[in-house]
Structures are given as structure tokens and as C-alpha cells.
């Protein structure tokens, strides 16, 4: 059974779901979706494989895996009644990830994507806005890694540098700033970007540990 948008709404969260009317139909912005939600949805065809670009998430199962993780977060933009047209995913870093050395201090916004068919509606901003409203993030160094090989430069008709600027402006609105690191994937290309937001309750000592970790020095 396909749920209606009203069924999808749930007030039991810090940032409630809300819908907005757009020139491309009614869109529901739903933060922190429950794992059982995804089986009743479908992915828009603007998320998928393209000649120069592939979506990070191509199966609904992947949403469920993230939502089931400890403190995993999946926020969705859903075109009424059941089409996923955008998503924002957050979770702790993988165990083999450099940033996992700092335990639960580090929290990754692992993916943010809007369907090619629904860009220009500020949905990325709205998804981030709803995701980042939680007090949870004040105890975290929240980070995002932007790799140019994941960017839809063709679809956006932007150069790597222009796309990087777009990311900086978008995440900058939520208190993120670029930091440098010698992490090999980030360092591979200058347009790649790591941005962080330091929560209000993160200690100076923890920030210094993270700074050293960025340059390959593990915390003692």
C-alpha cells in the first residue's frame, strides 16, 4: 500500500515534516525517516545512472541501511504521493574511515542529492535545514566530503570550481566551513572539499584532536 503524504507526516521529531507547493507539484520534506518507510516509496528517474554521473543512492534498500544505523538519519523530499526526489543522509563514519578514530564525536553528512527533474526548488537547502535543526549536532563535529567525481557537473552545467563554490555557499548557510586535510581522497583534487560544522558543546581539546587527525596524526 502506498502511503499518502498525510500518513507520512509524523510530529514525533524535532523538525516536523512539512509540504510545499511547487511548479512541479506538491513536495513533502520529511526529516529523520523511520526504516520501515522506504519500502512503500519509489525513486524518481532523475536519480540514477547518467553518462557522466551516477547517483550515490540507487536503491531504496540503501536508505533503510542508513536509517537502521546507530543515530542514522535519512531525510527525504517526496513528491506526492510516494516519489523520492531528493535525500540527505547522515551517519557516523565507517569503522575503516579515518574519522572513526574520534568515535561518536564525528558525524558525517554522507550524501545530499536532488533529482535532475526537481532542481532549482531549494530542496537541498530545505533538506539540510530540516536535518541540521536537531540539538544532537551541538555535541558533534559534523562533516561533509565533496568529491568532484560524484558531482553532476553535466546536469548542472558547471565546472568543478563552480560546483565547489555552490557547495560552500549551501553548507556555509548552516555554519559549515572548509578545512584542509591530507586524507587521500579529498587531497586528490583541489576542487574536492571537506567542510565541518563544530557543535556548540564540542571542546577545544576535541577540536585540536580532530585538527591533528586531519593531517594523519591519530589521537593519543
Amino acid at each position: 500500500m502506498t502511503k499518502s503524504s498525510s500518513d507520512l507526516q509524523n510530529d514525533d521529531r524535532e523538525a516536523p515534516a512539512f509540504s510545499l507547493e511547487t511548479d512541479r507539484g506538491s513536495v513533502l520534506i520529511r526529516p529523520k525517516c523511520e526504516p520501515e518507510l522506504f519500502e512503500n516509496l519509489i525513486l524518481d528517474d532523475g536519480l540514477g545512472h547518467f553518462s557522466h554521473y551516477s547517483s550515490i543512492i540507487q536503491k531504496l534498500d540503501s536508505f533503510q541501511k542508513f536509517a537502521l544505523r546507530k543515530d542514522g538519519r535519512v531525510s527525504l523530499a517526496i513528491k506526492s504521493p510516494d516519489v523520492v526526489i531528493g535525500y540527505c543522509i547522515g551517519s557516523y563514519p565507517e569503522p575503516d574511515d579515518r574519522w572513526s578514530a574520534l568515535g561518536d564525536l564525528m558525524y558525517e553528512l554522507a550524501a545530499l542529492e536532488i533529482s535532475r527533474n526537481f532542481r532549482g526548488l531549494s530542496l537541498a537547502f530545505l533538506l539540510l535545514d530540516q536535518t541540521m535543526k536537531e540539538d544532537f549536532f551541538e555535541d558533534k563535529i559534523t562533516y561533509m566530503c565533496g568529491y568532484s567525481w560524484h558531482w553532476d557537473l553535466e546536469g548542472k552545467n558547471l565546472s568543478g570550481g563552480q560546483y565547489r563554490n555552490m557547495m560552500k555557499q549551501l553548507y556555509g548557510k548552516f555554519g559549515f566551513r572548509e578545512v584542509y586535510t591530507n586524507e587521500p581522497n579529498i587531497a586528490l583534487r583541489p576542487e574536492n572539499i571537506m567542510m565541518i560544522r563544530v557543535g556548540a558543546r564540542v571542546s577545544t581539546e576535541a577540536q585540536m584532536k580532530f585538527r591533528h587527525l586531519r593531517f594523519g596524526m591519530k589521537p593519543k
Partner: peptide, 8 residues
């Protein structure tokens, strides 16, 4: 600095 699409 003005490289275009990803070559990956």
C-alpha cells in the same frame, strides 16, 4: 583551473 567534467 577551469577543468570541465570529471574524467573519472
Amino acid at each position: 583551473l577551469s577543468s570541465d567534467w570529471s574524467d573519472f
